[in-house]
C-alpha cells in the first residue's frame, strides 16, 4: 500500500432494502489532505461517510482506514478517527465540558489525560468561558466548535466532518474553515461532506462530486475547473444589432487562442486559453465589424460549471431525488 494513502475505498456500495443509496464507489484519500464529498442532499455523501466511520456496514465492496478494514477491524478504526456529526447531535442538557468528559470515557482516556486534553481543546476552539454552561444556551457556531472539540478529543489521525458549516452564518463559517485548515497544518487528514460549492472550492484539496449514489468526478478544484476548458469571455452586444452576431462569431473563431464560441441571443460565450491576450483581439474584431458592445465579462470556470458539466444539473436545482439519507 502506498504509505500516503490513509483511506482506500474499493467498490463500496450500500442498499437499504430495494433502494440503492450508493454504488461502486472507489477512491483513495491521502495523508494530510482535506478531502470533500460534494453533492446535493440525498446524493449519498452521508451514507458514504457513515460507512467509513464504521457506524453503517456496507452492502458491497470494502474500505480500509489507516490499513484497517472498516468491518472486520472496526474497533481499530474507531480508536484512530474522530467524528464531527451535524450540529444537532449535541445533548442540550449537558455542558460543553461534560460532553468532552463523556467522550473521554468512551475513548478510555485516563483522568489526567482527560483533564489535559479537555483544557487544550477548549482553548483551541475558544470555548473556555462557556465550558460550564449547558449546550442549549449555545449558539449554532458554539455548538459547532464544541462538535469539533469532541471530534478531536481522541487525538485522531483522521477527522470526519458531516456538513461542518451547514446553517452557519458567514463569520462562523470562516472561523470553522480556519480550524479545519489549522488541523491540516498539524498533519491531520480531513474528510468532509458538503453541499456548498464555495466550501468545496475554497477548503478542499481534492473533492469527489457525488450524485445519484455514484462518484461523477474526482480531482482538485483547480484540476476540475481546468478540465472544463479554461477561462471564458462573455460578450454582449446591443439587442438591435443581434443580426450581426453570426458574423462576429466567425470573426472571433478565427482568432488564435480561442477554443470554442457559443452563440447566445444577444451575445457570445467564448472559451479562451488566455483571456489577457484574447480580450483586446475580441474588441478589435467587434469594432471592425461595427458591433456596438453592451458589455464584456471575463470569468474563470466556477465549480458550479464543473458540477453542471458532470451531473447535468445545478447543485441547488431540482435533482432527481435518490434516497432520503436516514
Amino acid at each position: 500500500m502506498d504509505p500516503a494513502v490513509v483511506i482506500d475505498v474499493a467498490r463500496l456500495g450500500k442498499t437499504f432494502g430495494p433502494v440503492t443509496a450508493v454504488e461502486d464507489l472507489s477512491f483513495t484519500i491521502h495523508a494530510g489532505e482535506i478531502f470533500g464529498l460534494l453533492g446535493p442532499n440525498g446524493a449519498g455523501k452521508s451514507t458514504t461517510l457513515r460507512m467509513l466511520i464504521t457506524v453503517l456496514p456496507p452492502s458491497t465492496g470494502t474500505a480500509t482506514v489507516l490499513g484497517h478494514d472498516i468491518v472486520t477491524e472496526a474497533d481499530a478504526v474507531r480508536s484512530l478517527i474522530g467524528y464531527v456529526p451535524q450540529e444537532r447531535a449535541v445533548d442540550r442538557f449537558l455542558t460543553g465540558r461534560e460532553h468532552l468528559e463523556l467522550l473521554a470515557g468512551l475513548y478510555h482516556l485516563s483522568r489526567v489525560e482527560t483533564n489535559e486534553r479537555i483544557d487544550e481543546l477548549l482553548k483551541l476552539v475558544n470555548l473556555e468561558e462557556h465550558a460550564d454552561r449547558v449546550a442549549k444556551t449555545y449558539s449554532g457556531g458554539m455548538k459547532r466548535k464544541l462538535d469539533i472539540a469532541c471530534g478531536l478529543l481522541p487525538n485522531p489521525k483522521i477527522v470526519f466532518l458531516d456538513e461542518p458549516t451547514l446553517g452557519l452564518d458567514v463569520q462562523s463559517r470562516l472561523k470553522i474553515w480556519d480550524y479545519i485548515r489549522q488541523l491540516r497544518e498539524n498533519g491531520i487528514t480531513i474528510v468532509l461532506t458538503t453541499n456548498y460549492l464555495e466550501e468545496a472550492d475554497q477548503l478542499c484539496d481534492r473533492l469527489a462530486i457525488i450524485d445519484g449514489g455514484t462518484i461523477r468526478v474526482i480531482g482538485s478544484p483547480l484540476e476540475l475547473k481546468t478540465g472544463l476548458g479554461g477561462d471564458s469571455l462573455s460578450v454582449a452586444i446591443k439587442p438591435h444589432e443581434a443580426d450581426k452576431l453570426p458574423r462576429l462569431r466567425e470573426g472571433v473563431m478565427g482568432l488564435p487562442l480561442v477554443r470554442d464560441v457559443r452563440l447566445k441571443p444577444t451575445g457570445l460565450d467564448i472559451l479562451v486559453e488566455s483571456p489577457e491576450k484574447c480580450l483586446p483581439a475580441v474588441i478589435e474584431v467587434a469594432q471592425r465589424l461595427d458591433c456596438s458592445l453592451d458589455g464584456i465579462e471575463y470569468h474563470r470556470p466556477r465549480l458550479d460549471d464543473v458540477f453542471v458539466a458532470h451531473t447535468g444539473h445545478g447543485l441547488r436545482g431540482g435533482t432527481p431525488e435518490m434516497v432520503e439519507e436516514e
Binding site: R50, I53, T54, V55, D75, R78, S79, I81, Y83, P85, Q86, R88, A89, V90, D91, L103, L106, Y107, H108, C150, P154
Partner: peptide
C-alpha cells in the same frame, strides 16, 4: 434521531 447515538457508536466502545 439527532445523531448522538451515531456519535457514541463511532467511538471504540
Amino acid at each position: 434521531e439527532n445523531g448522538f447515538l451515531e456519535r457514541m457508536m463511532s467511538t471504540p466502545i
